[in-house]
Write a protein that binds this DNA or RNA. Structure first.
Length: 676
RNA sequence: GGCGGGGUAGCUCAGAUGGUUAGAGCGUUGGAUUCAUAACCCAAAGGUCGGCAGUUCGAUUCUGCUCCCCGCUACCA
């Protein structure tokens, strides 16, 4: 491995349109913080850079909904997000924002250099334009009827009712969300970065890092295999970094163009040496991100850097998988999350407990699950019982028997050689784990110090030997207090608040990584300040309250979801009469090959049997629905799906949770009965 | 359907470029102990490493097929 003189650590720029939750923390900020604290303890040259990403369409939509300006929205969330991170001890050297003028300038310079050197491809495409608002519409700004499920309210990129991915010109009856007007197609020019041209260089880059995590390499290689395509680096939008070219009013840089440059621009506000941290060959760049950002950090940003020239490419991109909550995906829109600002209210002063619990089940190799029960166990059985208890034992014994002064080392018990040996191995093992981004393993190793301490006390039994040999007991307690000091250093990256408390209690100022296993760290005779209990038990009712809170937010979200679709446009009786809805009976049902959602049904319509394909496979087993009476639209034009003609459509009622129910007659009715 | 990740003790997860008894924490059971937040310490029980087949002297680790979970993507209601 190459020798590096300094390390530039970035944590993903978080999107400033909402508060942050445990998923964010576990995904990249906690591991990044642990890593940085570790390097600092080793007295390495390291900077830790992150901030908020404040551009892009969702922020403008949120602003419009709330009747604010985009700047007001990002100002609010920047403050809230930064404060949450501060309170959790995420020790950024700088926490910047992409709406900063310095960021605009540096992004524009970056863009201009690529532009002047002909690194972009200009292309004119047809996009929807709102004439009354006088601007082009982003996909999310266009609503219309979904071509697939026919329901109104589909967005230009996706129909949220049926989940179909769309492009704006597929929408039926498109309307601008800005003015409600029907938009018109207009040509617009954008600048594309031809990622395909950089594919060979990117492939070489990726192949030079076989040590990257399998999840990262897997996803990147999959993209390379599919072949990279040119990607637009500019957008028609008013909110963002303006394109620094004449005649481009109303166009900004694509958020994923300017966001990664944010790391650089934020560094420039931290130190005048910023270029060294990004360009010097002996600078190592490490991006901590969640798995959703892999492509941008491993392909697009590197391609930008290659096109620009001069920038170092990332040496590591330790992307974490996702943290689930009580078995379900964390979701902001469904309010299924533990919000940091709420945790701070419910568990004041317990930041380290959450840091510990999240690190201990960090989603390093696969999605992990955060449960409140696990949180309680980690606190009660590990932090309280192992660490807190050991520290308390050491302090109480010294308080009681040695007037709070560190006793001198005298006669040993014979256990000390083994103790030294056990401790000496720990720093090297910790180094190895942390340098390889194995934070879960590292945390276990750091806790090992307290475990060793408990064992040492149990075996040496100072409370017994104090009666006949106080000096020998003093020796044991001297060793014990050294172990407390070692624990405070080894655990600092993980639970910094507790480490700080311990250092104060011990009067320990400078703490270098190398002092772990130094058994003369705390001099004899020093007066100690008992820090009190480091952790307290968390009782069942407290945990239950959190679980109830989640259940409640879930059910209230389900209620909210029952938002009743607006009544469609009035139609004439003749229109209704055109529809031939009938009762039929399912006589056969089977899963469609190669489809997750489709069932192939054979329906007896009274005259003959017909084949109807229905997207209900997720809710019904084929065997279970054979024989059921159903209603169906009988004169719908046949439509070919997956190679088979579907003759009609089964009518289903959709419940608030998305589940489906057949429309059945309330008494036995003959097949072919018409429904009016 | 395509691509990627994963299926290992009751739970949460490690691990093995193929090789003697597959690990950790928690939980469980038994023992010991009382300095300590009924905590600590010791010990034990507990796994045919998703299923089937192949390569091999030998596979849980490699290959093929197959089932299940997660993500992206396609098709689709």
């Amino acid at each position: 491995m190459a020798e590096f003189s300094r390390t530039t650590v970035t944590a993903a720029l978080i999107y400033a349109n909402g508060p942050i939750h445990i998923g964010h923390l576990a995904g990249c900020y906690l591991p990044a913080d642990i890593y940085v604290r570790f390097l600092r303890l080793q007295k390495k040259d390291v900077i830790f850079v992150s901030g908020t990403d404040e551009h892009g369409v969702p922020i403008t939509i949120k602003a419009q909904k709330e009747g604010k300006t985009p700047q007001e929205v990002v100002d609010y969330y920047y403050k809230e997000i930064k404060s949450s991170f501060d309170q959790f001890g995420i020790s950024f050297d700088i926490y910047g924002r992409t709406s900063d003028p310095v960021h605009h300038k540096i992004s524009q310079d970056f863009f201009l250099k690529l532009y002047e050197e002909g690194k972009f491809v200009e292309e004119t495409t047809m996009q929807y334009f709102d004439e009354s608002a006088n601007q082009f519409l982003a996909d999310r700004y266009i609503v219309g009827d979904c071509p697939s499920c026919k329901q109104p309210g589909a967005y230009g990129d996706q129909c949220e009712k049926c989940g179909t991915t769309l492009s704006p010109n597929e929408l039926v009856n498109p309307k601008s969300m800005l003015s409600g007007a029907s938009p018109v197609l207009k040509p617009t020019k954008n600048w594309f970065l031809p990622l395909d041209q950089w594919q060979p260089a990117l492939t070489e880059y990726i192949h030079s890092h076989p040590e990257w995590k399998p999840n990262v390499l897997g996803q990147v290689k999959s993209w390379l295999q599919d072949g990279l395509k040119p990607r637009a680096m500019t957008r028609d939008l008013n909110w963002g970094v303006p394109i620094p070219l004449l005649g481009t009013e109303g166009k900004v840089l694509y958020v994923w163009f300017d966001a990664p440059i944010g790391y650089v621009s934020m560094t420039s506000q931290l130190t005048p040496d910023w270029e060294t941290y990004w360009k010097a060959k002996d600078s190592r760049i490490v991006h901590f991100i969640g798995k959703d950002n892999i492509v941008f950090h491993c392909l697009i940003f590197p391609a930008m850097c290659l096109a620009h020239g001069g920038y170092q490419l990332a040496d590591q991109v330790p992307a974490n998988e996702f943290m689930n909550l009580e078995g379900e995906k964390i979701s902001t829109s469904r309010n299924w999350a533990v919000w940091l600002h709420e945790y701070l209210v419910d568990f004041p002063g317990k930041q380290d407990v959450l840091r510990y619990a999240l690190t201990a089940s960090s989603p390093e190799t696969k999605d992990a699950d955060f449960t409140w029960a696990d949180f309680q166990t980690k606190n009660n059985s590990e932090l309280v019982a192992i660490l807190g208890n050991f520290v308390n034992r050491a302090f109480v014994l010294i308080d009681k028997n040695f007037e709070s002064k560190v006793p001198v080392k005298a006669e040993e018990t014979g256990l000390e050689d083994e103790l030294r040996k056990a401790l000496v191995e720990i720093p090297a093992k910790l180094d190895a784990a942390l340098a390889n981004y194995k934070f879960r393993d590292a945390l276990v190793l750091a806790m090992e110090v307290a475990r060793i301490g408990n064992k040492y006390l149990a075996e040496a039994e100072p409370w017994k030997i104090i009666k006949e040999n106080p000096a020998k007991a003093g020796t044991v307690l001297n060793y014990a207090i050294q172990l407390v000091a070692h624990a405070s250093i080894a655990l600092e990256p993980f639970i910094p608040f507790t480490a700080e408390r311990l250092r104060k209690a011990l009067g320990l100022e400078d703490c270098s990584w190398l002092e772990i296993a130094n058994f003369d760290l705390i001099p004899a005779g020093k007066t100690l300040q008992n820090p009190g209990l480091l952790f307290e038990k968390i009782e069942d009712d407290v945990i239950q309250k959190q679980i109830d809170k989640l259940a409640q937010s879930k059910s209230s979200m389900e209620l909210a979801k029952k938002e009743i679709a607006p009544i469609k446009e009035t139609i004439e009786f003749d229109d209704f009469a055109k529809m031939d809805i009938r009762v039929g009976q399912i006589v056969e049902a089977s899963k469609m090959e190669k489809s997750k959602k489709l069932l192939k049904l054979t329906v007896d319509d009274g005259i003959r049997t017909r084949t109807i394909l229905s997207g209900i496979a997720e809710f019904f087993e084929p065997e279970a629905i054979v024989g059921k009476k159903i209603s169906f639209l009988a004169n719908l034009a046949p439509r070919k799906m997956m190679g088979i003609d579907s003759e009609g459509m089964i009518l289903m009622a959709e419940d608030a949770d998305g589940s489906l129910a057949f429309m059945q007659p309330s008494k036995e009715v003959w097949n072919g009965a018409t429904i009016r």
